[in-house]
Design a protein around this nucleic acid. Structure first.
Length: 952
RNA sequence: GCCGAAGUGGCGGAACUGGUAGACGCGCUGGACUCAAAAUCCAGUGAUGGCAACAUCGUGUGGGUUCGAGUCCCACCUUCGGUACCA
């Protein structure tokens, strides 16, 4: 019987489907285990070979846990709203829903092709009204709650209103945008609009003016990665920062808990660190600086209050509200010019900028401690959204301030003597204070404390904890997202829609071009926007992270129409035990989802404070991008491509044109090239280049004719290979279907795992897949003779065979537990080679081997399992147990090193006492030879490991 | 810029806790089978020197700790991910 993956795989997929092998319910006595893959966005390019890496790993683990007796929830669905579908709609007129449905169908088929053990009855998509009904519902809950810092949880806003009516804002400790103080009487006297404005300060979902990247020419708001060098990536139009009234989520209210609870998670340290750095908690002081000739006081935040005597200038963010009034007439021109410059730059560009820029406003602040006048500047290195958007600059003890002061010739006053710490950096909090009045002589930590105390005594500020984390902007001026269940009365006050009226469905639209003035396309749909009573709907939609912030809960009970999920289901499944996905979600999705879960926990709707217990990050499988060099200037009206080895000076004067990787030979290697056939395929693909010149080292190809230079015949055009994202735009997407078609799904699964450690990024390459394919055939052939006849016997296995089996069980089990799936595959290969050497065909060995392999190669294992005479699925078989008895070794091969260099090896019995090992080693002739003329100083023996002799 | 990760043969990688560097696989070389090829099987394969035994070097670079470093520490280089509206 030949191993025929195509036939076998088809057969067992059908069986699993018909027998609903992977369907689970929460009505079970078994312990639960929830394995989740990060939500895919169904892109138009389809699934590429990089996506399944994590899915295969999680599938293997899910299957492993089933073998171990768990009730495993392993679902899949789609993050189906998003920008790409909308852009595609703008270009083609195809409705985003249509394109998304098609993409999902394709994803589903591709996923099914790989043999995943998903419970497809739980499949969901965020653009389904039955789903986004609950996204809208959660949003309304956020809208109707505020964060009470005394209770340290979310509380209904109605309770805040009751409090205001009772005693005004007195004694309220709540997360808010702008603190305000008013009495109960004042509150009651406020207009509905004024009350709404106050409540907006507290709501967990609230409206505020924020800045967006506005592109007038495209009439739309752009994502940061659509902006390159201050212009739109598409079309190169100018982009500016535009203020806009938008919805935000008050994630900062949860900053402390998001930080604190990281400790409880089984995530990598690097992932936790990224999250904690993103939250960016810092303890310091809020401090007010009087302004010369004004009664206003400039608020700053500093973690280094101790350095106040070294503050020689102030820096404001260019968007700071006071910039205009602090600019003197003399400086107006330069300030305006500078504002014009920064207005065209994104935050990211500003942070990455090495060049030092800035301009003085002309006015001065007064140092509250020594009364000195210090000039106020603006610079792009200070960001509006961080702290108060204003800093006191201490060039002696901050790098950026130092460079700024040097560049502009501002004074630098040394205030800390760090001579006792020669390795300390400028910002290290060490040393003794000098030139600092009452602080002089103190150690830095002591000085920080003393300054804080003094600030509070003087009433010029207070201790404050600041977070880098910012509230999440929740509005998108787009069509393809969840509509906000919000209506505005004629005063502009936002009202929640009634929960019974959800979902608020996206209305049909023909044209997806943005409406003018930064409004979403929905704004044009007047019948939908304008309600009969004169009220209007919100026309923005929710961002991509809305639907993905809670989807893990919906999988627990995906068809519920009474709640986002039943309490029964939530209390059984609780949380995700294993979450696999990429590090690109480190601070976005993972932070938002934790935030939503905590909010729902505060509401008593979920039983756990953290949604994702264990997180494993799979590395990205990258693609190779192949480019041809195209000369920027045409030659006699014709485009000219030049073989890469002929291009000098880093390709100045050339553009790199991405080329379809299928045309390229030796794809991915430094010598990758396209031959004559490749050139022809390229021309057919890009007909605008049909008359182009292709210059190779040995000749020139044009219009189907190759003209040789110096008699050479080689028409290869060397391409430039770069490792990068696998993406439609680079024409380098490799479809898993093609690999499955050629080698089978089992082989594809094993090969993806065999490529290397799960966490590591690696470029896709099919070199080596033959080895895995061979292994599967070898494994199969243990069960059959050359004639294809079944040869498995019930004979008792030998000790050697048992040892191989039990070693393999232990290895697979241990490696699975630490997600070392690549070494599992090697382990299978080693065991199979060993069993072939032993001519094993005994059921007692092969049956457990089949179960071991089942998580990795489920189709093949299922086939063999049934041929072994089992009538139920291998999916439900118990995972084999290993026994130490078979693993015991009689002797150990010790490496014998002399001065740390291995010189010989020696076999010694297990359990030999250390002195005897030493003697045995010293008596070895090889050792004696090396020790000639030397004196042995020391012998180090690690029993079972190694021997090292130190001699000189 | 800032935060995080990774650099080991021709290639993907192994070495889990500081203890035999290169498991396993690809590729390559030689051999068997074959009219031949494919497939399969067997042997070899880090570099340098040597007929060989063997020796020297060798885990991005430079330093350090240690009896012993791919693994720990410091500095640097390169690549990748994120950087708040791609998902």
């Amino acid at each position: 019987m030949e191993y025929n993956p195509r036939e076998i795989e088809k057969k067992w997929k059908k069986y699993w489907d018909e027998h609903q092998v992977y369907q689970v319910t929460h009505q079970s006595d078994k312990p639960k285990y929830y394995v989740l893959d990060m939500f895919p966005y169904p892109s138009g390019a389809g699934l590429h070979v990089g996506h399944p890496l994590g899915y295969i790993a999680s599938d293997i683990y899910a299957r492993f846990m089933r073998h171990k007796g768990y009730n495993v929830l392993h679902p899949m669905g789609y993050d189906a709203f998003g920008l790409p579908a909308e852009q595609y709609a703008i270009q083609t007129g195809i409705h985003p829903a249509t394109a998304t449905t098609e993409n999902i169908a394709r994803y589903r088929a591709q996923l099914e092709n790989i043999g995943f053990s998903y419970d497809w009855s739980r499949e969901l998509k965020t653009c389904d009204p039955d789903y986004y009904r609950w996204t809208q519902w959660i949003f309304l809950q956020l809208f109707e709650h505020y964060y009470d810092q005394d209770a340290d949880k979310a509380v209904p806003i109605s309770e805040l209103v009751a409090r205001f009516e009772r005693s005004g804002s007195f004694g309220v400790h709540a997360a808010c945008t702008q603190p305000s103080a008013f009495s109960a009487t004042e509150w009651k006297a406020m207009s509905p609009k004024a009350k709404d404005d106050v409540l907006m300060n507290y709501r967990l979902a609230y409206r505020q003016v924020t800045y967006v990247n506005w592109c007038e020419a495209l009439g739309t708001v752009l994502a940061n990665d659509e902006v390159k060098d201050g212009v739109s990536e598409r079309g190169g139009h100018p982009v500016e920062r535009k203020p806009m009234l938008q919805w935000l989520l008050r994630i900062t209210a949860y900053a402390e808990r998001l930080l604190r609870d990281l400790d409880t998670l089984e995530w990598s340290d690097s992932m936790k660190k990224m999250q904690s750095n993103w939250i960016g908690r810092s303890e310091g002081a809020q401090l007010f600086f009087p302004i010369e000739g004004s009664d206003k006081k400039l608020e700053i935040f500093t973690t280094r209050a101790d350095t106040i005597f070294g503050a020689t200038f102030m820096v404001l963010a260019p968007e700071h509200d006071w910039v205009k009034e602090l600019t003197t007439t003399d400086n107006a021109e330069s300030v305006n010019a500078y504002l014009k410059y920064t207005n065209a730059r994104s935050d990211r560009e500003r942070m990455a900028e090495k060049e030092i820029t800035g301009v003085a406003l002309g006015s001065h602040a007064i140092n509250p401690f020594n009364g000195e006048r210090i000039p106020i500047w603006i610079s792009e290195y200070v960001l509006k959204d961080y702290g108060t958007g204003a800093i006191m600059a201490v060039p002696s003890d901050d790098d950026r301030d130092y460079k700024f002061a040097q560049y502009f010739g501002l004074p630098i006053v040394e205030i800390i003597d760090k001579s006792a710490f020669p390795d300390a950096t400028r910002q290290d909090k060490v040393g003794v204070m000098i030139n600092s009045d009452f602080l002089t002589g103190m150690q830095v930590p002591q000085a920080i404390e003393a300054t804080l105390k003094r600030i509070e005594e003087m009433g010029i500020g207070k201790r404050q904890i600041n977070y880098k984390l910012r509230d999440a902007i929740y509005s998108r001026q787009r069509y393809w997202g969840e509509p906000f269940p919000i209506i505005y009365d004629p005063e502009g006050v936002a009202h929640a829609m009634k929960v019974e009226d959800l979902p608020l469905e996206l209305p049909e639209l023909e044209d997806f071009q943005p409406s003018g003035g930064g409004k979403s396309p929905l704004a044009r749909h007047e019948e939908w926007v304008d309600l009969p009573n004169g009220w209007r709907r919100e026309t923005d939609t929710m961002p991509g992270f809305a639907g993905s912030s809670w989807y893990f809960l919906r999988y627990m009970d995906p068809h519920n129409d009474q709640a986002f999920a039943s309490q029964d289901a939530i209390n059984y499944w609780k949380d995700v035990d294993l979450y696999i996905g990429g590090t690109e979600h480190a601070v976005g999705h993972l932070m938002y989802a934790r935030f939503w879960n905590k909010f729902l926990y505060d509401k008593g709707l979920v039983p756990v404070v953290e949604p994702f217990r264990k997180l494993v990050n799979q590395g990205m499988i990258q693609g190779v991008i192949e480019y041809l060099y195209l000369q920027k200037e045409k030659v006699d009206g014709a485009s000219r491509f030049v073989s890469a080895e002929l291009v000098e000076d880093h390709g100045d004067g050339f553009a790199k044109i991405p080329i379809h990787v299928e045309f390229v030979e030796d794809y991915g290697s430094p010598n990758s090239f396209i031959n004559k056939k490749g050139i022809e395929q390229f021309i057919e693909w890009r007909p605008e280049f049909r008359n182009a010149i292709f210059e190779c080292s040995q000749g020139v190809y044009q219009n189907g004719v190759f003209t040789s230079k110096n008699g050479g015949k080689d028409s290869r055009m060397v391409t430039v290979s770069e490792v990068g994202k696998m993406s439609k735009r680079y024409f380098n997407v490799i479809n898993p279907d093609d690999v499955v078609e050629e080698y089978g799904a089992d082989c594809f699964r094993l090969y993806e795992m065999f490529l290397g450690p799960l966490e590591q990024a690696k470029p896709w390459d099919t070199k080596g897949i033959d080895g895995v394919s061979k292994f599967l055939r070898k494994f199969w052939s243990l069960f059959f003779n050359e004639k294809g006849e079944w040869i498995v016997t019930d004979e008792a296995p030998s000790r050697e065979e048992l040892k191989t089996l039990h070693q393999c069980i232990k290895k697979i089990h241990d490696d699975l537990e630490r997600f070392s799936l690549n070494t599992c595959v090697s382990g299978f290969m080693i065991a199979t080679n060993e069993l072939r050497r032993l001519n094993t065909s005994k059921r007692a060995i092969l049956e457990p081997m089949t179960v071991l392999l089942a998580p990795f190669a489920p189709h093949l294992s299922e086939e063999l399992w049934h041929r072994l005479g089992n009538s139920t699925t291998v999916v439900k078989a118990a995972f084999p147990q290993w026994s130490e008895e078979y693993l015991r070794e009689d002797s150990v091969t010790y490496p014998v090193s002399i001065n740390g260099k291995k010189r010989a090896t020696v076999d010694l019995p297990v359990g030999m006492p250390v002195p005897e090992i030493e003697t045995a080693a010293l008596e070895m002739p090889e050792v004696k030879k090396w020790l000639e003329g030397l004196t042995v100083r020391k012998t180090i023996v690690v029993p079972g490991r190694m021997i090292n002799i130190v001699a000189n």
